[in-house]
Design a protein around this nucleic acid. Structure first.
Lengths: 119, 119
DNA sequence: CTAGAACTTGACACTGATGTCAGTTTCAAG
DNA sequence: CTTGAAACTGACATCAGTGTCAAGTTCTAG
């Protein structure tokens, strides 16, 4: 499929999809005229990438991580190096802290909302 | 206490504390010479502010939210307007989606980490 | 009184993903 | 062919919190 369809199906802008390619996150074949041609699996991959961005990982870490993930179709094509594992473990902890923050903030919002809606 | 101590005790930079004041998030008395003087309660407040920032709220929303929160010492000094409640409910949903993203990403990281560490 | 630590304001830089615009080229249907 | 939709590259803008530096002022211990 081409970039417009991929954008539509994932809800990610074309701009971002090109950026992902630039960052080595998302490969694409090219038509003879130079247009990007994505395989079906790209949809899943883009969703994964978005999740990881939303989780606060930067593109370079995502780039190192992606080859080690088991894809929708088939096992991982690489195993994480010790260095990467260390990095990911740190990200994991950061994510845990973030979740804790979010839960506390959600609690705070709920209190204010409930108070305003009359308990 | 003064800004240096508050920064030390909260782990937030002096720069950020001044920014919070500029944004109307954190009031401070002034010494005759112009130095900021914070009450003890500022520590809790700064922690709350940081949590809300970490949860992805922007300073203007935090500014509107803060007066409606029950502080460490005493009840809220205001009740949220309907407009604010609507905003906060939207933020709440965004937070829920973010938490879901984080959980999925954490799962992904765990898979890669476990695979590298030999299952 | 004095030295040095701590504080003040103001300004500019950065980050990093994404938006947007311009000018050109390719694709696909009639 | 022609034509309009879709895609290409490249460049510059944005956002918002934070870092950092400079030049000057205040505070406090000795």
């Amino acid at each position: 499929m081409r970039i417009g369809e991929l954008a539509r199906r994932t809800g990610v802008s074309e701009r971002s999809l090109r950026y992902y390619e630039e960052q080595g996150l998302l490969a694409a074949e090219r038509t003879p005229g130079g247009h990007r041609e994505y395989p079906e699996a790209a949809v899943d991959r883009v969703v994964r990438i978005q999740e990881l961005f939303a989780a606060g990982l930067c593109s370079s870490k995502i780039a190192r991580l992606l080859p080690c993930m088991r894809d929708a179709d088939g096992g991982p094509s690489a195993v994480a190096t010790p260095k990467l594992v260390e990095d990911l473990a740190a990200e994991r902890e950061r994510i845990d802290r973030t979740i804790a923050d979010l839960l506390r903030s959600r609690e705070t919002l709920d209190e204010v909302i409930d108070a305003a809606r009359g308990r």
